[in-house]
């Protein structure tokens, strides 16, 4: 089975939000909640400055804290390593929302917990997730981590630097950040997927 992962090259990202808009429409994410958001950080004083945009979403962790806390089994990991919520069995208790260290889940007003699915409905058809497909900076890559020739494996190999968010949580995320600007440390040696 593939082990799906995504990499985002922060040296390329301009924070334009094409990914966030594509996600919103592809997945009919209601107004007021979001599966994908962009964080801006700025450092330094004029004229010695640095900044980065960092898109964030569910990291589809290999050790997802949100899954074991689910009382109904709605939160689950697929054979491909995707962390998903079955809306039919979700009782919207919110345990997974509280457990996620990345604040990646939300209450969908329609009565279940929503989150990024890596666009599972697209990848089963051989397409890329909507955010990857549209990105005008080509900063996102996606594919099978176990395939050394996949886009994502090649991008990670070629990167000057690879980071994950909150490595101390031991979640082993499958969304990684490449080429973080020098002044912005996420620091993640040894925590890679």
């Amino acid at each position: 089975m593939p082990r799906y992962a995504m990499a985002i090259d922060l040296a390329a990202c301009v924070g334009c939000a094409a990914c966030a808009v594509a996600c919103k429409l592809e997945n009919e994410v209601p107004a007021g909640v979001d599966r994908l958001w962009i964080r801006l950080e700025e450092r330094g004083t004029f004229p010695d400055l640095a900044m980065q945009y960092r898109p964030e979403q569910c990291l589809h962790c290999a050790e997802p804290p949100c899954v074991p806390v689910c009382p109904t089994g709605a939160s689950h990991v697929t054979a491909d390593g995707l962390v998903l919520v079955d809306a039919e069995t979700c009782i919207a208790c919110g345990a997974c929302i509280a457990a996620c260290p990345y604040d990646a889940r939300y209450f969908d007003p329609r009565g279940f917990v929503g989150k990024c699915t890596f666009c599972e409905h697209r990848i089963v058809q051989g397409q890329l997730p909507a955010c990857v497909e549209t990105c005008p900076t080509l900063c996102r890559t996606f594919g099978d981590l176990d395939d050394p020739e996949s886009d994502v494996s090649r991008a990670i190999r070629a990167a000057r630097r690879v980071d994950v968010l909150k490595p101390e949580q031991g979640t082993r995320p499958k969304l990684v950040y490449l080429n973080t600007p020098a002044r912005f440390g996420l620091a993640a040696e040894g925590a890679l997927p």
Partner: peptide, 17 residues
């Protein structure tokens, strides 16, 4: 910043599921 910025005050106001 862009992306969900203006949502901030509203996210908390989402109705109970």
């Amino acid at each position: 910043s862009v992306g969900a910025v203006m949502l901030a005050p509203e996210a908390a106001a989402v109705k109970l599921p």
